[in-house]
Nucleic acid binder design. Structure first.
Length: 817
RNA sequence: GCCGGGAUGGCGGAAUGGUAGACGCGGCGGACUUAAAAUCCGCUGUUAGAAAUAACGUGUGGGUUCGAGUCCCUCUCCCGGCACCA
């Protein structure tokens, strides 16, 4: 190393702090730019994956700042969550001390990256000055009817000993620990995200987000148009008079030969006959206790049991036997399915197994008379048969006519159903925000008064998981009195999902120190929405969807006036090691510190940006990192060594022109690449340019003034990527003001333009020669020059020219017979 | 099963329908050095050739085009998402 990176890193990080270079001024009159990167969970070690997420984001934010924006690029810690609790249980330390010690360590490591975070704005969600506002926002949502308690069947992770949101289930397994989940009926807190399903779907069209994320959110919301049909059970003598089903195929209504209720369906016990009770109860119990993976595996044989009762298909008055089966799930649509075995493969399999009649009602041909036995369900389109007045109708048509018939009869209606469920936010764990509600036997649910917030998380809880919240066993916390009637009452003891914290943290950055409100409305008005968000795609249907919902809900409550939190989104890839995600438990964490110590922060930053497109991520491999160290070394040499040009040569103006041309080409390329997160090619362009400068220096034919100015411009372009070495060299070149206060250079297309270009000569599309011609020559001239080429002549021998295709400044293709 | 994205040298990767392999790593050869490291110079897709050059070459097979890594169709494999969703 020709320069001492450790010395320079420390020198400038210190100097920038002293100068307040990265303080963000809310009153700055420059246009604002809010560039946000997802805040990390303080797991203890900043690994190379964190750098991969943060260093390029920092370079981009710096680039925006150099374009003249007032840039807010904050950092904080997603400090509540299970790992702290698990680590605490394992090691006997308190989650708070574990978390705070980790934050301490991570903050130091993040500072070593040389980022522009304004640490005065840091947020830590696990501190009362943050979670107080979680509680306050919860109460606002509660007042608005968007937070409610309900008995819906919840997803339960047997290992984490808590309920989860549907979004936290990946292929039937807990997102965090991979344990197969089960469903339990529990009384839990939900947020009404489904009320916003349509808006979430529709307004995503206007976001500058990757298509795949928008698609994932669309699929997750899963809006489906169909028909709700009610089947008559009034003969059963119970309160409910019908079973409602949702179907996308109302055209097959005459083909219904059975009804299936989900094992959790509320009507199930009421519709089970005495004779069938034992069989049904045992089936239901088994089904409910199975994990989703077992239960929803598509390759198992259909199972089920008859309830012994029937319902009436009102359209034709047929008696339809009722079954229960685990292929019908309670958490989608109405939890009941009309069985049309002739036209649905699942129903077909069920009917075959239980010897239920299969009645065909759609035929591929119009003149169809006789029902043959179907080998499998016919799911194609065709014409209705066995359907009374609708016979002969095209089935797509019949979907509408049957639906309107049902509507006018009051037996059904056209409707929509959604896959998305309301967001379950209760967690039976300790290390989270206490839900600020009091349960009173007289008054029911009573919100904690605002001036009593925060409801503090007690320090001395026994947090070993037991299936109920640790706070439930904390008498002092649990026992309180009702704010409204003053009788003894108890506190809600569940805590909030940590995605609650991250749904609004970006608002808090604008006024993180404020203790009289969740945020300063003026500042939020100034900074929001986030102009550019960067982070991993794994949050597509969790954090990103929740945050969008939050903003819309808070807008409707009157706390905000924006519709969307994040205007632009960029998903960077992930650095993996040994083929999987880096994690402490897997023991494959790559620590950046040794690299930083050996090579300096700039080398690590630059290398991470150079290895490939940012969205790609990839396997960690340090084989090329020395190449970056060598390059920065060469730059050090280039700038610090007196050029000593031979100013007497006559070629001087020409070389100057060449330098200028290459410089302007490079500015254009680097500007456009940084603008669109293409750091790898921006760095490649800077490398090419520095290689050119080295060649030029060897000639000694240039004006020293041009040389120095060119070096300075080059350093400015490199400074968002490698902030320390460029600042040092900037100082060495005699500059007094920080390089990071300079504007990004602009280019001039006419200076960048080449006057001599290589023209590719092809014969029948194969390259035969490249000739240097003046830029912009016309076809005739190009043709003449091309035909003069000996190699071209050789290939033309004995052939006649059919056609010549000329593309100016690119190619000339001679087509011969 | 459905919906996305992808497959380019030994490796990471680059290429508005117009020179495939920029840039970097690694490798080979050379200079400097007592030597090594560092640094510098040259070569480096495959095959043939001393070279000029030629043929071949972007997962498979076809197509459109003067011209295809790029556009269209087929298949294979890999990655991500969803999935007994009614």
């Amino acid at each position: 190393m020709r320069w001492n990176p450790n010395f320079i890193d420390a020198k400038w990080q210190n100097q920038w702090t002293i100068d307040g270079l990265n303080k963000v001024d809310d009153n700055d009159s420059k246009p604002k730019w809010y560039e946000l990167t997802m805040y990390p969970y303080p797991s203890g070690d900043t690994h190379i994956g964190h750098w991969y997420a943060m260093a390029p984001a920092d370079a981009h934010a710096r680039f925006r700042r150099m374009q003249g924006y007032n840039v807010l690029h904050p950092m904080g810690f997603d400090a509540f969550g299970l790992p702290a609790e698990n680590a605490a249980i394992k090691r006997g330390v308190h989650p708070r001390s574990w978390t705070m010690a980790n934050i301490e360590k991570m903050r130091k490591q993040l500072k070593s990256m040389g980022t522009i975070y304004d640490w005065d704005r840091e947020i830590i969600c696990a501190l009362p000055n943050y979670y107080k506002w979680n509680q306050w926002l919860f109460l606002k949502l509660y007042e608005a009817g968007l937070a409610y308690r309900s008995d819906a069947p919840a997803v339960w992770c047997p290992s984490c000993q808590t309920v989860l949101a549907n979004e936290q289930v990946i292929e039937g397994q807990c997102e965090r620990c991979g344990t197969p989940i089960v469903r339990r009926k529990l009384n839990q807190w939900f947020l009404g995200i489904t009320e916003y399903a349509d808006e979430l779907l529709e307004s995503s069209e206007n976001l500058d987000w990757p298509d795949r994320i928008i698609t994932m959110q669309k699929n997750w919301i899963g809006r489906n148009e169909g028909t709700e049909v009610s089947f008559d059970i009034s003969h059963m003598g119970i309160n409910e008079k019908d079973i409602k089903v949702f179907t996308t195929r109302p055209d097959t209504l005459y083909g219904v030969t059975f009804m299936v209720l989900a094992p959790e369906h509320p009507l199930l016990p009421l519709l089970t006959t005495k004779e069938n009770k034992i069989a049904v109860t045992s089936y239901v119990e088994k089904a409910i206790n199975r994990s989703d993976i077992e239960r929803l595996s598509t390759d198992q044989e259909k199972s089920g049991v008859a309830l012994g009762s029937y319902c009436i298909n009102r359209i034709n008055n047929e008696k339809i036997p009722i079954f229960t089966s685990d292929y019908v799930v309670s958490w989608y649509a109405t939890g009941a399915v009309m069985g049309v075995p002739a036209h649905d493969q699942r129903d077909f399999e069920f009917a075959t197994k239980f010897n239920i009649p299969i009645k065909q009602v759609i035929s591929p041909e119009k003149s169809f008379s006789q029902t043959k036995e179907l080998p499998e369900a016919f799911v194609g389109s065709g014409f209705l048969i066995n359907s009374e007045q609708f016979n002969g109708e095209e089935n797509t048509n019949a979907q509408q006519s049957i639906t309107s018939f049902l509507s006018s009869a009051g037996w059904g209606k056209s409707t929509r159903t959604y896959r998305i469920r309301d967001w379950l936010i209760s967690r039976q764990r300790y290390w989270g925000t206490p839900i600020p509600i009091i349960h009173c036997s007289n008054c029911g649910l009573v919100p904690v008064e605002e001036d009593k917030l925060p409801v503090l998380l007690p320090e001395n809880a026994e947090f070993k998981p037991s299936g109920e919240s640790p706070l439930a066993r904390h008498e002092e916390f649990r026992n309180t009195e009702c704010p409204s009637c003053s009788t003894p009452a108890y506190r809600e003891t569940d805590t909030m999902d940590t995605f609650f914290d991250s749904s609004w943290y970006f608002l808090r950055y604008t006024s993180s120190q404020l203790d009289t409100a969740s945020w300063d409305p003026e500042k939020v008005k100034k900074w929001l929405p986030v102009d550019q968000y960067t982070g991993g795609a794994e949050h597509a249907v969790m954090h990103l969807l929740y945050a969008r919902f939050f903003i819309k809900a808070l807008r409707d409550i009157g706390l905000l006036s924006i519709d969307e939190p994040f205007l632009r989104l960029f998903n960077q890839g992930h650095i993996i090691a040994d083929g999987t995600k880096m994690s402490k438990s897997r023991g494959n964490v790559v620590n950046p510190d040794p690299y930083v110590e050996e090579l300096g922060a700039d080398v690590v930053r630059t290398y991470l940006m150079f290895v490939g497109p940012w969205e790609g991520g990839g396997e960690w491999n340090d084989s090329g990192i020395n190449g970056i160290a060598r390059w920065l070394n060469r730059i050090w040499e280039l700038v610090t060594h007196d050029p000593k040009p031979n100013i007497e040569t006559q070629k001087l103006p020409k070389v100057d022109e060449l330098i200028q041309r290459r410089l302007h080409q490079t500015i254009r390329k680097v500007h456009n690449d940084l603008d669109s997160f293409k750091f790898n090619t921006a760095i490649a362009a800077l490398m090419e340019f520095s290689n050119d400068l080295q060649e030029i220096r060897k000639t000694k034919n240039y004006d020293p003034k041009t040389w120095i100015n060119t070096c300075k411009t080059f350093l400015i372009m490199l400074s968002p990527i490698a902030p320390h070495i460029t600042e040092e060299l900037w100082e060495i070149l005699g500059e007094k003001n920080s390089i990071h206060k300079q504007l990004f250079p602009s280019w001039n297309d006419s200076i960048a333009e080449e006057n001599q270009i290589p023209l590719i000569v092809q014969i029948n599309g194969k390259m035969r020669d490249r000739i240097i011609v003046p830029s912009g020559i016309d076809e005739k001239e190009a043709e003449k020059t091309a035909l003069e080429s000996p190699n071209v002549q050789r290939h033309l021998e004995g052939n006649s020219i059919n056609k010549i295709v000329y593309v100016q400044n690119k190619i000339i293709n001679i087509v011969v017979s």
